[in-house]
Nucleic acid binder design. Sequence first.
DNA 1: CGACCTTTTGATTGGCGTCAAAATCTGTGG
DNA 2: CCACAGATTTTGACGCCAATCAAAAGGTCG
Lengths: 258, 258
Amino acid sequence: MNFNTHEKLHASETKCSDCAIRVASLFKSVSNGNLASAEELRKEQVRIPARTRIFQEGEMHDYIYTVYSGWGVIYKTVSNSGKRQILRFVLPGDLVGFQTNVSGVMAHSAGTVTESVLCSFPRAKIKPMLEKNSELALRLVDMKARDVSLCHNHLMAAGRKTAKESIAFILMELFYRVQYQVPNNDSKATNTIDFPITQEDIGDAIGLTNVHVNRVVKELMKEKLILCNKKKLTILNEKKLCEIAEFSSDMVVTHPLA
Amino acid sequence: MNFNTHEKLHASETKCSDCAIRVASLFKSVSNGNLASAEELRKEQVRIPARTRIFQEGEMHDYIYTVYSGWGVIYKTVSNSGKRQILRFVLPGDLVGFQTNVSGVMAHSAGTVTESVLCSFPRAKIKPMLEKNSELALRLVDMKARDVSLCHNHLMAAGRKTAKESIAFILMELFYRVQYQVPNNDSKATNTIDFPITQEDIGDAIGLTNVHVNRVVKELMKEKLILCNKKKLTILNEKKLCEIAEFSSDMVVTHPLA
DNA sequence: CGACCTTTTGATTGGCGTCAAAATCTGTGG
DNA sequence: CCACAGATTTTGACGCCAATCAAAAGGTCG
C-alpha cells in the first residue's frame, strides 16, 4: 500500500462557507459569542483522495487540519528498515498537524485512508487565536491531553501486550471512536462499523506484520468474537474482547477539563 | 524491583516558601506580573523516598505535581500478565498526573526512582487558574504537545525498532533530557550523566526483558559506544549511537508555541 | 555481615518475522 | 458488464530475535 503524494494541497481548495461548524471538535466547548469572534479566521476546506499524503515527516508544513470526514493516519518511518509506525488513526473531529516547534518541520507524516474532507488552518495564526480566546486554549489542552492518553494506551499495546491482546484492543478502540466521532453511524444498533483500514495498517499500528495480523484476525473470527470483511467490522462478543484487550470504553471518551 | 506505597502522601508535606520558583517549568514563559497573580495558589512541597509510589492507576487522586528534583516513572500494568509498561521517565521540570477526565480516576500509575521533591497542586484549581491566566494555558498546551511528541518517539521505538535501536534511542533521549532538565549536571563536559534506572526499567519502557536488555547493553559497551555502570552513563560515541537510534537532539527540545 | 536487588551468563523455547505463492478482492478502463 | 492489474488476504514452511528458565556473581544498604 503506497501513498500518493498530494503536492498541490492548497491548489484544489474551495471556500468553506461556514467552516466554524465544520471545526466543531476544536470549537466544541466554545460559547457562541466567542465563536463569532473566531469567525474572522477564514478557513479553507480541502478534499483529499483516498491513500494520499497530506504532509511528510521532515518537511515544512504551515497548516494544521481539522478532519471533517474520512479516515486517515499519522505515522513515522524507520529509515533503516523502511518500516512504518502508525501513531494514530485519524477520524472526524480530530486535529492533525498541530505541534509546537520552532522550525515548522513536521515530526511525522500524515495521510488519508479514505477520501477525506479537512479544514485547513494556518499554523501561524494559532497562537494569536488562543491568546484572544482562552476557551479555545482550554479546549486545545483537552484535546492534547486526550492525544497523550490514547498514545499511552497505544504504547501499552505495542510494548507489553501479545498480538492477540493488541489487535483486540485496537479493534475495540476504533469501534468506540467511530461510535463517538463518525456522524450517522449505526454501530450501536448493528455492532458494525465501516472499517476501511487494511490488516497491514493494523500491523503498522502495533508493530506486527500483515501476515501475523491475518492469522490473529482469523483466529478472532473462528472464536466468533468479531466478523471482519468487505471493509466492515462487526463486534460479536464485546465482553470477551474487552477482557482480552483490557479495554474499557471510557478509555476513548473525551472529557472537557473540569 | 517493587514500589513502596506512599499512602499518606500529603501527611508529610511541608510549606514551600517560594514555590513559584520551584514550578519553574510550568510557569517558565509567564511574565512576572502574571506570576505574582498566580502566587495566591499556595502549593505544597513533598519529599518522596526512592522507589515509592505516588499514585496508582484506577484510583482517585486529586493532585498534580511538578517535579523539582529526582527521577521518576509513569507506567501502566497489564493485569493479565503483570507486565509493566513505562510510559515516560519523569525528570525535573516535568508535570505528573495531569489528565482530563470526569472521574478523577488515574489512567496510569506514577512512582519515584530516586528520592524526589515534588510540588503538589490541587487538580480542581487548574481550570480556574488557566481561565484567569491565558499564558499558563498556552504553556500547558506546549507541555502537552511535547508529551505527545515524546510518546510518539517512544511508540516508534517500541513498535518498529530492534532491541538495539530502541535501547540506543532511550539512552540518547535520556542523556539529552538530563542535559536540558537536570540542574547542575556536567554532561556537556564529561558526556556522563547520573543514571539511576535499572536495566529492568529500560526493558519495561520499550517492551523487553531485563535479560535481553543486558545482552544489548553489554554489546553497546563492547562496541565502545557507551559506558554504563555504578548508576552512571557515559556516551562514548554519540554520532554512531544517533545513527543506530535514528535520534536527533531536537527530538527532545522544548519550544514555546510560536 | 546478611538480605535483597541488580547484573550477568548459559540453555532452551516460542512468538512472530520472513519468504513465497496462491486466492480473493477492488477499482478502472474498454 | 467484463477483463485485467494491482492491492489485499490467506496459507504453508522455515528461521530468528527475544522470552523464559535457572543460577551464579556482583552491588547496595541497613
